[in-house]
Nucleic acid binder design. Structure first.
Lengths: 199, 199
DNA sequence: GTCTATAGGTTGATAGAC
DNA sequence: GTCTATCAACCTATAGAC
């Protein structure tokens, strides 16, 4: 797992192939993604691709897993004692920043049952329910505030947290799915969410 | 546009090809979708496919547009005077029922820039912002209730409506994107949403 | 490790009989 | 309208030189 080394990496190295594949996935889509196009964009030869990744699917899996790396590396920990607006601002910004890159591979994996199964297996083995635990964490914090009377009583705070995360997913996905359309800004969504929580 | 005729349609007709393509898209994905597989599943020959749809892309576009048909046919109208819980229940159920079928083609279209561009153009030309107008409509109804004091003051009701629709999209998409995971039931989400709106 | 050359198989699309 | 037969292009993967 030597992911870095001294000096300029060789032109046809693993990283260039990985980056070129991600960019083509994002710009053209997976349907007409060929190893020839990848080689051209990476400035290498097709032979190198198969030397490094053995198969086209192996390369695609590597690209998918790289884009999900922030989720794997994530250390889930308590949200601390910062003011709620700040917590939700940072949380939603982090989620959307991750999704900006991840949707490309999440959508690409939908094109093939095997890729999708591999994606799900990878998440199960390496991400250990982190998306859900993020929602749980926010929910737990809201529950504490609710107990302290700073969040209105009578609402299921974990379901509320799911609503907030949903808006992050849709905001990032919508331009891809149905084209450019108006969506409330993230800050406005967080603001409205806070107002709906107030006692 | 003769979509029906007397008697049993010929085995290799347009409809069978369309259905077979949708099913393969849903079950296997677009990446390895071949006209041969489509012909086999439809019980027809490849020749018939190209006779009816001229090109593979033409067929795919037809499948996409058929799955979005409920959106095109939708007549957007006021929500009437039913109780809010009932309105939101019916609204979210309708949205998710549509998405259950639509995500298959919405995701498939992400595999190719041309397909995606075609999808966006089709929606712009035939759906006339109906997704957004659905959100607006719920928002407008909430605004009226807010003016009547039955929804708490100080919240942006249109952003709130966006939160609710987001949860529908994520609930339907999540099994595809990250695999089977716990998600709050639709009824629970609507219930929590209502509780957050109460004055 | 990277390249070139090429094999081997698949794919979308066409032609022409029925 | 549907079928069979066929083709030309393309794509993944391998072999072997450097």
């Amino acid at each position: 797992m030597t992911t870095s080394r001294r000096g300029r990496p060789p032109a046809g190295g693993r990283a260039q192939i990985l980056d070129a594949t991600y960019e083509l996935l994002r710009d053209k889509g997976i349907a007409r993604l060929t190893t020839k196009d990848i080689a051209d964009r990476a400035g290498t030869s097709e032979g190198s691709i198969f030397y490094h990744y053995r198969t086209r699917d192996g390369l695609l899996s590597a690209v998918i897993e790289q884009a999900l790396e922030p989720l794997v590396a994530l250390r889930v920990h308590g949200v601390g004692g910062a003011p709620l607006p700040e917590i939700l601002d940072i949380f939603t910004a982090t989620v959307e920043e991750f999704l900006d890159r991840a949707v490309v591979v999440l959508f690409a994996a939908q094109a093939d049952v095997d890729l999708r199964a591999g994606l799900h297996a990878f998440l199960a083995a390496n991400a250990d329910r982190k998306p859900q635990r993020g929602v749980e964490l926010i929910g737990d914090h809201l529950a504490a505030l609710q107990a302290a009377g700073r969040v209105r009583a009578g609402i299921d705070v974990h379901t509320a947290a799911f609503l907030l995360v949903s808006s992050c997913v849709l905001r990032v996905s919508q331009p891809w799915l149905i084209g450019d359309t108006e969506v409330p800004a993230r800050e406005a969504t967080v603001g409205t969410f806070l107002a709906m929580l107030a006692p």
